[in-house]
Design a protein around this nucleic acid. Sequence first.
DNA 1: CGAGTTGTCTAGAGATTTTGTAGAATGAGT
DNA 2: ACTCATTCTACAAAATCTCTAGACAACTCG
Lengths: 157, 157
Amino acid sequence: MLTKKTKYGLKAMAYLAGIEPGQTALVADIAAVNQIPKKFLDAILSELRNAGFVYSKKGKGGGYMLARGAGEITVGDLVRTLDGPLAPIQCASKRLYRKCDDCDEARCTVRLVMLKARDAIADVLDNTTLEQMRGLGQIPIDAVSESAGAAMDMARG
Amino acid sequence: MLTKKTKYGLKAMAYLAGIEPGQTALVADIAAVNQIPKKFLDAILSELRNAGFVYSKKGKGGGYMLARGAGEITVGDLVRTLDGPLAPIQCASKRLYRKCDDCDEARCTVRLVMLKARDAIADVLDNTTLEQMRGLGQIPIDAVSESAGAAMDMARG
DNA sequence: CGAGTTGTCTAGAGATTTTGTAGAATGAGT
DNA sequence: ACTCATTCTACAAAATCTCTAGACAACTCG
């Protein structure tokens, strides 16, 4: 399960993807609209800024904006930044791999299953950009929940 | 990320799936072979027992065995029992759904993405049985007799 | 029956992570 | 100067995770 921090971060990024390009949004506004504690969101956006996803400007007329186009930021990368590896267990992670100390890796069947789970998760999250995520809000719900594959194709298209 | 508890539980179940049908395994042996703290494993197996996945017998000659065939127990159900929902966020869960309080569900794009992630995860874990998981670990025989074989022999006493 | 074996249950300790808050500092604009 | 808004450091309550202790209950064997 993702932490609230990650969920808040994704919602904030979706918000930023929705404002006019070149405009900035205030933390206070993002927090109010999405029901996120303001100070907590401060820290989250700060982290996203250090990771290069958003650009910030202080003072009057300041605020946050995306550092790149919404079509060039994937949900997968945001989740990795805020929540850590996509894989269910770290020894099954590809980008944030770390050896686990309680089993022999080559023969650990749990790891082999989780490797497949990781690929399935990454296939969804790494192929969904902020722009596509926003687009999901305009699709009738039953079309999304009905078939993951069909929805994916739509999102990719 | 899954907790260690879940990982331990899966490893223990894989172990039980590997012994002769009708035989029991001691907690102490499962713990030793898989490097799991014995008392912790006690609690985990107890939970799996309450959930109906394993059968236990007290006293001399006792121990644990699978309550059903290894082909009838899915990794997904084990993970749900030990770790909770498969979905990255609970409002995107199907079997363990719970409303989230910080957003309007129908329009929450984060939820819609995580619904697809959930489907992808469930597609892997619900379609992988303990038997299939064990199959993933099939390796050359000479490699087995080395350390795993010795450990197994030790475990069977 | 009695002794040894093995799982069961309750309780909780210790560590870590999560979810925030407070308040001063920094930089930008007017 | 003054205000606005992000940034930084520090902290703390709450929840969760990981693991242990110890008494207890059920079982087998002789």
